[in-house]
Design a protein around this nucleic acid. Structure first.
Lengths: 188, 188
DNA sequence: GACAGTCTATCTATGAGTAGATATAGTTCG
DNA sequence: CGAACTATATCTACTCATAGATAGACTGTC
């Protein structure tokens, strides 16, 4: 009675996991083959080239994460929203040492075609503009400390989140994510 | 009359460049072979395994960068030091789209042996503690805005720098590095 | 003649990707 | 109805290129 996931979905799921763990150049069709239990040729049937697979992985991941972002209740206080965001960011760290798929692909970007670069850029921009709104709200509510324009601060904050998951995994700790949140939160 | 660099040094230099561009899994002995003009077997003569090569690359890079950090005049104002630091960070972005070698290897960390992880960790810690001192100085001088303890803020700031070079390369702009600096600088 | 440094030649494993067979499930039409 | 056809999904078997790594021969120099 297990939830019937198609082979295609399984391939995509495992691809996402592997990219978050080892990056574009760090996984192969062979890896997927042994994880899903079908031959590599079957994977090529669904995803003709590796780039096709990665592009779909970005889109699927992006939809999921941006969906979760959209699901954060708009009527919450800004600092509460930020906490939820930080938790979202660190979610994959605990089980499996995975970092944000798009952060990973940003590191691998020089090995990737332009359509994937654009998809990753879009993900970055979506996060930055969401954060910019939260920061602006936090300024109004007096719960978040923002130096300069919210748009600029949001880009820096997003970079800090991306960098901190990198460092968190490097040091096997989640503390660095909290450090980032603390830089903008105003103590009560 | 070119400066006589040994083959060994050339290999190491190109390895560093390639790692900063494409990461651990994104370059090969063959790439180095064609760049330096010796056979791959000669590279194995100097660096028996790829991991040996990468470890030496981290050490060489680390010495160079930390040397440059140490070279920043201790008597400067904190905000001036921070500007120099940001410039240092973005130096390799313009020519060649390279990001910090240790930031790159942090992304690839799950493919790397433990001795390299430790070397990368050491580099991170050195940067963070240097930044912590600068932030503490900036608080005293009233030129930098720090929320919370300098140690925590320094970790978050360093993460922001790492994340911002990632984003800068992704978007082909250096603006994101400046956004980071702006979050702690107090406008005159 | 020992040794550092480089080469040729080769190995074994893995990389993405392709060709073509097969099996099964619909679908169409006489 | 049932034969012919088509689409989907999978496999076996392969290609060609690349990966890191090794063995052993050669060459110059101290």
């Amino acid at each position: 009675m297990e939830p019937t996931t198609t082979v295609r979905e399984q391939i995509l799921d495992h691809a996402i996991t592997l990219i978050m763990l080892r990056g574009y150049n760090g996984f192969s069709y062979r890896d997927l083959s042994s994880l899903v239990g079908v031959k590599t040729s079957s994977i090529h049937y669904y995803f003709p080239s590796k780039d096709d697979l990665v592009l779909e992985a970005v889109n699927a991941y992006s939809n999921e994460v941006l969906g979760a972002l959209h699901g954060i209740n708009a009527s919450l206080a800004a600092d509460t929203k930020l906490s939820k965001y930080a938790k979202l960011f660190g979610r994959t760290l605990g089980d499996g040492n995975q970092i944000c798929l798009c952060g990973m692909l940003a590191a691998d970007i020089e090995s990737l075609p332009d359509n994937i670069r654009q998809a990753v850029q879009a993900f970055f921009k979506a996060n930055e503009s969401w954060l910019a709104k939260v920061l602006a709200q936090g300024v109004q509510e007096g719960t978040l400390a923002v130096n300069g324009k919210p748009e600029n601060a949001a880009r820096a904050l997003y970079a800090a989140f991306q960098g901190s998951v990198l460092a968190s995994r490097l040091f096997h700790t989640k503390a660095r994510l909290e450090d980032v949140e603390a830089t903008v939160r105003i103590a009560k």
